[in-house]
Design a protein around this nucleic acid. Structure first.
Lengths: 333, 333
DNA sequence: CTGTTAGCGCCTTCAG
DNA sequence: CTGAAGGCGCTAACAG
């Protein structure tokens, strides 16, 4: 494993010059630089990240913390982050944290601090005060995607608006009996993504003078959506439309409706949130939130902060867009 | 940021003792250890991974290299790896490599070498000789999941057997006109996962004295599966059964069949490979390969190698299991 | 069992 | 523009 002094010797310069030539920091004559580059290439020299970061304090690695790895939204955002980061020569250190408090503490207090990372991106993580403090204590740029966190710089779609848009779409079609599948009023924090979408739903209904009914908590999986939808649709006076807070739940709802012999959208309209690729196949109308783009933007945000830009003033807002693919229509009566 | 000598001072011992007490390597009296632990906790001390790995050569980080992040199989395996690794206090450094040769070279020759990682896990990566050599050159344990690579220690299901099992299942039901959706004979390496499944298909057919027809290449997405299935099913003499090399393609095939007014399994039987959670909802018969478990096993394998175990002799074989959920049945005639 | 003391490999002032 | 040299924070002999 060639070291910096092997290169220095081969190029006939000092290690300081090698360091300068390779890092681009500090003045080096063209001639010297060329010799260094050639020698480095010939020897297959690569700086040791450990040594380099011990000396500089920077690691060219970004920590990414997620609550799930195997759900569409998270892996898609992660893919976006990875794309953007790899282009800039940064690595990702990945942390998937469960709900287990002890394990979370270990990740926040040990791993994240021990490991040299230059910045952190969290995806839809609901952090308690202590965890937020832990993150801030790292003294590095932090960007939280999805879910406004008053304690952190966040980059998020306006989920209240998302909830309102989806609901307004249904009301605009003439629906009056509308169900919502999503947040659990008991366990979800008021500022969480699910809770905001739900609030958007409730507010919009209230403004239209419609009483809120049929709000079913579910866990954002197809299965959860299906179960919840089955429950609402089996009421004596079932809703004519369902707003699910995620596409996976919406797909579950479509499947549940079909199982009950209901046609979508003829018998019941269904709308989701996400822009899940699968939605296309179900003709699912949804509020697309461009997950991959969110990841890219978060990566760009932390990188520009690392390049000296001030932390984004306040919070960044990400785009969303209602995509009508046909799973919603006016109620039959 | 408290350092090791802050702890040493607070505990009234030398830094060497602190290091020993905290790492567990080397003898320390109980009394000293307790004082060190207390001081470290009080000061919120965490070792600097950069300094530690510079001194030891180990980083407690495992590199994971994948070709995709946003496809079910990969994110699921990754979740398994993460679970197993986090339990043992290791971090994941994640690399998603595209097909772009230049970018791949950068990852293999720069990132992977610069970054201190103690071992590498690759998931379904088709490596050329140079890339394999690059990896081996790291001089650290390597485990390749999915796809036998003659140049590396691999941990993989026997995809030839998977292909045979799926095909035999269809033949056993009485099908004689069976199509396959999967490998592209032109672009897929003979030892790749898709090619092996396809070969299992072809061999099994041949052994039953049935001529191979209707082999459609597709890209392992729902969309690709749907398109390919549409093509086979529109033949004048369409197959009575379809074996898709992944569940995502199989689901695409089911959707395509439905679109053509065909019932599954009455008009056409469909079987996939993976154990994708979505399969449940389509009643998809599949060859489950327990993706999450694959990740866990790979993680365990590299960790035990790091703990001194010899590299697994030859290649490890992972389990698979045919799960009949009803999308296959005897042909009508 | 414990402290002292070299480095680990690189970066970065500071002179020249 | 370039080289010499100290030090980043920790670990691993080596004495004691």
């Amino acid at each position: 494993m060639a070291g910096i002094d092997d290169v220095a010797r081969a190029a006939g310069v000092s290690t300081a010059t090698v360091s300068r030539a390779l890092s681009g920091r500090g003045p080096v004559s063209t001639a010297a630089r060329d010799r260094v580059l050639a020698a480095a290439a010939r020897l297959g020299y690569v700086v040791s990240s450990a040594a380099s970061s011990l000396a500089t304090g920077r690691t060219r690695a970004i920590g990414v913390v997620v609550p799930f790895l195997d759900r569409w939204f998270f892996s898609t955002v992660l893919a976006g982050i990875s794309d953007a980061l790899v282009r800039r020569g940064y690595d990702i250190t990945l942390y998937s944290v469960s709900a287990d408090p002890a394990e979370r503490r270990r990740v926040f207090d040990d791993h994240l601090r021990r490991r040299g990372i230059d910045a952190v991106i969290t995806i839809a993580l609901e952090l308690d005060a202590e965890e937020s403090a832990s993150l801030r204590g790292l003294g590095i740029p932090i960007v939280a995607i999805a879910g406004p966190n008053p304690l952190l710089t966040t980059l998020t779609v306006d989920d209240l608006a998302v909830g309102r848009a989806a609901t307004a779409h249904l009301l605009g079609l003439g629906h009056r009996r509308v169900a919502h599948i999503g947040a659990d009023a008991v366990t979800d924090a008021a500022s969480s993504v699910p809770a905001l979408r739900r609030r958007g739903f409730e507010e919009t209904l209230a403004e239209a003078g419609i009483a809120v009914r049929d709000v079913e908590p579910a866990d954002f999986t197809i299965e959860g959506g299906s179960t919840a939808a089955a429950r609402v649709l089996s009421r004596v006076d079932p809703p004519t439309a369902v707003f699910a807070a995620s596409d996976e739940m919406a797909i579950g709802a479509i499947l549940a409706a079909r199982e009950r012999g209901l046609r979508v959208p003829d018998d019941v309209s269904i709308i989701g949130v996400d822009g899940h690729e699968l939605g296309r196949w179900f003709g699912l109308t949804t509020v697309d939130q461009f997950a991959r783009g969110q990841g890219e933007r978060a990566a760009d945000a932390v990188l520009s902060e690392l390049d000296g830009a001030r932390p984004a003033p306040g919070r960044g807002t990400l785009p969303f867009e209602l995509v009508d693919r046909g799973s919603t229509a006016p109620p039959r009566r």
